[in-house]
């Protein structure tokens, strides 16, 4: 009998969506160029050109191949992370799953297991790690940020339990070379080729399937998605399992690439992954983003790291740069939205 709710509703959320059309008709032309992922791609080109000019070895095929290979794990994990963040969740435990995976590879190899047995086993462990995250988030309704900070410590701790302070090396050459060698006839390392294949698959899933559509709906308005019959919990569970699985697989590649299994492998790369995803234009609040943008973001992070390394910038400063990029990438779209709104005000 009350109309309080009906009339109060517009007050709460009266502002139209951020991509509401302006009064003009030129939105398509200019708006398209100002799309975030296009901007990031432009920035990528600038970094590339800048790098070529300042550092003679930067643009060489050898260095680029190395830079790409060095980026492999981050790039792979970023694919799953993109889908999570679009659905307004996050997985901070990926680097620890990578470490646990690396520790298991080392410890089992040391115990005389064959690589053929170790790899599937380790990947299953990664899937279980993701399942635990997913169950805590979907069944108990805990926020994924908190859950995965917890499991970030937990899984890293398990990695130390498994391997301690030891470093296991001396993996058989044929496996190590799989992680570093180029696909015959190209300057593209195998992990990068794998990434390209998976990226294409992810892009299709995210942008052209019902599953992908569901992720955007969940990320923008979970309740409405649920009311539309989308299996929100199941989908989120799948995403976390996927994230754990990919992180474990990245751990295998990481171990073989460096030829060294250690419990502290990959410490901190979750930040690089999230930075790449956010720089790629995925909204941390969910519901917005493109995989093309994320790939540009991953490459941007990778080239920057490589460039800083070539110029003998210390890892500490590299970390500072990553952090700044992360903040700028979160801040810029908000600033842009505010400016756009200010500009729209004088219009009727």
């Amino acid at each position: 009998m009350s109309e309080t709710t009906s009339e109060a509703a517009p007050a709460q959320k009266a502002s139209p969506g951020p991509d509401a059309p302006g009064p003009g008709t030129s939105r398509r032309g200019v708006g398209h160029l100002l799309r975030w992922d296009v901007l990031v791609t432009a920035l990528l080109l600038v970094v590339f050109l800048g790098g070529s000019l300042t550092s003679p070895s930067f643009a060489s095929a050898g260095n680029l191949s190395f830079a790409l290979g060095d980026l492999g794990e981050i790039a792979l994990i970023a694919l799953a992370m993109t889908m999570l963040v679009v659905a307004a969740e996050v997985d901070l435990s990926v680097a620890s799953v990578l470490g646990l995976s690396s520790a298991l590879v080392g410890s089992l190899w040391d115990a005389g297991w064959s690589i053929e047995t170790i790899i599937p086993l380790v990947i299953v462990v990664g899937a279980v790690c993701g399942l635990v995250n997913g169950l805590l988030v979907t069944r108990l309704g805990l926020p994924s940020l908190a859950v995965t900070i917890g499991t970030m410590a937990l899984y890293r701790g398990l990695a130390y339990v498994v391997l301690g302070d030891r470093a296991i090396a001396e993996f058989p050459q044929q496996y190590a070379s799989l992680a570093v060698d180029d696909v015959p006839g190209t300057p593209i390392p195998y992990p990068v080729a794998l990434f390209v294949v998976l990226a294409v698959v992810t892009a299709i899933v995210l942008h052209s399937t019902g599953f992908g559509r569901s992720l955007f709906a969940i990320g923008s308005q979970e309740e409405a998605a649920f009311f539309a019959g989308i299996r929100v919990k199941r989908i989120k569970l799948v995403l976390f399992v996927l994230s754990g699985t990919i992180a474990a697989f990245a751990g295998v590649i990481f171990t073989l690439r460096y030829g060294s299994a250690r419990a502290d492998n990959g410490v901190g790369i979750e930040l690089a992954v999230i930075a790449a995803v956010l720089i790629g234009g995925v909204d941390f609040d969910g519901g917005k983003g493109t995989l093309g943008g994320v790939i540009a973001g991953v490459l941007l992070i990778g080239l920057l790291r490589n460039l800083l390394m070539l110029n003998d910038v210390t890892t500490e400063i590299q970390s500072v740069v990553t952090g700044l990029l992360l903040i700028v990438s979160v801040l810029t779209p908000r600033l842009a939205a505010v400016i756009r709104q200010r500009r729209r005000l004088p219009a009727p």
């Binding site: 559509r213 709906a217 923008s220 308005q221 009311f227 539309a228 019959g229 519901g287």
Partner: peptide
């Protein structure tokens, strides 16, 4: 409507399609 009926950030066509993916 605004919380349960619609995903406010999505377009008209995506909203209409959402229950029939």
């Amino acid at each position: 409507r605004r919380q349960q009926g619609l995903v406010m950030e999505l377009s008209i066509e995506r909203n209409i399609g959402l229950a029939g993916l």
